[in-house]
Design a protein around this nucleic acid. Sequence first.
DNA 1: TCATAGATAGATCGATCGATCTATTTAATG
DNA 2: CATTAAATAGATCGATCGATCTATCTATGA
Lengths: 202, 202
Amino acid sequence: MIASDTRHRLVRAAEQLFRTQGYSGTGLKELTAAAAAPWGSLYHFFPGGKAELAAEAMLWAGGAYGQGWRRAFAQAAGPGEAIEGVFRAEARILEGSDYRNGCPVAAMTLDIASTDERLRRACAEAFRGWLDILVEGFAAHGADAEAAEAMANFVLATIEGAIVLSRAAKSPGPLHACGRLVRDAVDAEAEGWSKLEVRAGG
Amino acid sequence: MIASDTRHRLVRAAEQLFRTQGYSGTGLKELTAAAAAPWGSLYHFFPGGKAELAAEAMLWAGGAYGQGWRRAFAQAAGPGEAIEGVFRAEARILEGSDYRNGCPVAAMTLDIASTDERLRRACAEAFRGWLDILVEGFAAHGADAEAAEAMANFVLATIEGAIVLSRAAKSPGPLHACGRLVRDAVDAEAEGWSKLEVRAGG
DNA sequence: TCATAGATAGATCGATCGATCTATTTAATG
DNA sequence: CATTAAATAGATCGATCGATCTATCTATGA
């Protein structure tokens, strides 16, 4: 019943270690130890080895984060408020982990996007999943497809960058400052969207 | 005369390789080969080994980039235009390198910020240098200290994040979209700054 | 010419890398 | 109980890691 619990522990440990010290910086010995999983089980569940495990870890992380973002849009009154909530949540994650728990996808991208084409695609798909959630959220507030896509890239890029700055500085300052300014920017753009709501409904 | 040319080649190769495939993902054998430098020279010039070389590479990269940003502010009419120019320049760098040449400081941060405190500080200082240039640029357009600091973090974060997204997607799209929206955001904020110019002069 | 320091050259070190391999144990099914 | 597959366990592989070491070559100055 709890048969594949080991497999799940491996995925979570991978996500946790990759996001704190990158892909190349994490050894599989260390990973299996953190997961309290036997070495043999790693290649039993992931015949493709480290890369296959990493791809699955990104998939899992993508889903977990995505859910949080959907909730943010559902609970907030406007798109700007939703986005600032995401920034605040991210700041809490960083502060609660001594600025270790960054974004696993960003870490993977900077590590292997130029050396492993398959993993680069996995990173791109993980980002695309988040972008789609943002696009959907902005579209629900009246943004047309082009504006929503641009705004989604803008918001996601700022979050990712702010995480990097906050981790380097070991301070929530960059995330908070970016959250406020991104909120202003989103709300300013959203003013123009509402006029399109009628057209978008057709 | 050309005595320390080898040393400089090592620094440039380090910057080039770290920005492409990260710190842990780059071996020193590969690095010395890329620099066409003898293995022994590495520890001759950098007794502190890989970490010391990395710190110097970040210092060098920080200076090179910083100069470009100062030029952008000097040549542009307004702060928004200057920033969008930086985004465009970055997009050109990525396109010209098949999306390999990202930011070495961001790569280092995600790789070792949580495992090597000395290098984390080096990353923070490199970012701080760029932030100071941005702060100076915004202050020159009338921003007060607090607004300039927040805006600098916002702009730098968005650039760094957009680089990550563009590398993952192998497309200049994210950088271009972010450049336009950041320009709008900067210009919108800058409207409020000009009213403070008098106060800032006192 | 000789002495010295700087720089080059690479062999070699122990440690660790990801991966493969053979056993053993466990769980499910007849 | 017997059979079979899944899962666990870890020894071991060659390759590579960063680092240390000695030796050689080169330039400078006395």
